[in-house]
């Protein structure tokens, strides 16, 4: 840290800094600012129109419910599998750890297709049997939850695993030797030390879950007020030339995602970001 501050600033430093800021300004900052500006073009009219439209509010509600389910599932699964991957040895561990990242590299449309082939009501592999048992997955909320959980699956794990590696097992073993059970060790020792990584992973998952579009489009059937999520509404409104509503809904989605991210970046202890 000290040597970093002592680094002399040459002309190159400023050129690089300006170049990077300019690039990010043109690619991210300015476009995002324009959407915010367009949302508030006519004062609060756009937001009011959007929020009094039942199609939009129903979609937002569905999105929030689905995102919460997906994030809850991914958090429990993520913490569990991270502990298993880091703290235990078993055959196939490396293969599993590689496969966990798979959802990040799969096209959302392919995710949708895969879930339809497995859980589609008429010609899916498990779909007809589940439907006979009274559980409709494709073109219903469970399918949307599955698609959302699929695309955001690795995010919690990717944040926790490096931290688990770093903190080591000394404290856990000390707790164990002092007579703590596995649950007690987890709640008192492990969880507090992975807290920030977990929060960051959960926020990333939430952002991804709220914003999923392609996979949901394929498995949801996109029926207004039933299986239409907020991102699907944005597409429809934009294409129906109700751009005010499209911008307002986008703004709300972006607001939740970016606000969560900013809050975590601010709250997270500085030394944690530096990876120390």
């Amino acid at each position: 840290m000290a040597s970093r501050l002592a680094q002399p600033k040459t002309a190159g430093t400023y050129v690089r800094r300006l170049f990077v800021i300019g690039y990010l300004f043109l690619l991210v900052i300015w476009p995002v600012a324009l959407v915010v500006q367009k949302t508030f073009d006519g004062g609060l009219d756009n937001l009011q129109t959007a929020l009094s439209d039942p199609v939009v509010t129903d979609a937002l509600q569905l999105t929030v419910v689905v995102a919460l389910w997906a994030v809850a599932i991914n958090t429990v699964f993520g913490v569990g599998i991270s502990l298993l991957l880091v703290r235990y040895e078993f055959p196939g561990r490396r293969v599993l750890s590689a496969l966990i990242d798979l959802p990040l590299s799969v096209s959302p449309v392919v995710v949708g297709l895969a879930l339809l082939l497995a859980y589609g009501g008429t010609n899916g592999t498990f779909g007809p049997a589940l439907e006979d048992a009274g559980l409709q997955i494709a073109f219903a909320t469970p399918g949307i939850v599955l698609a959302t959980a699929f695309v955001s699956l690795p995010l919690v794990i990717r944040e926790i695993v490096p931290v688990l590696h770093e903190i080591g097992t000394e404290q856990e073993q000390a707790a164990k030797s002092l007579g703590a059970g596995p649950w007690q060790t987890f709640w008192r020792i492990t969880l507090p030390s992975i807290k920030w990584a977990l929060v960051y992973g959960v926020v990333l998952s939430l952002a991804r879950a709220l914003g999923e579009f392609g996979a949901v489009k394929v498995v949801s059937g996109n029926i207004a007020q039933q299986t239409q999520t907020a991102t699907l509404v944005v597409e429809e409104k934009y294409q129906d030339f109700e751009q005010g509503s499209a911008y307002a809904t986008s703004f709300l989605l972006a607001l939740i995602a970016v606000a969560a991210l900013v809050v975590v970046t601010i709250l997270r202890p500085k030394d944690d970001i530096d990876g120390d």
Partner: peptide, 16 residues
């Protein structure tokens, strides 16, 4: 700012 493209819903990214 670096994290925004990741956090933003993709359909919104297109709109942006």
């Amino acid at each position: 700012v670096i994290d925004i493209p990741f956090a933003l819903p993709t359909i919104v990214a297109g709109l942006v």
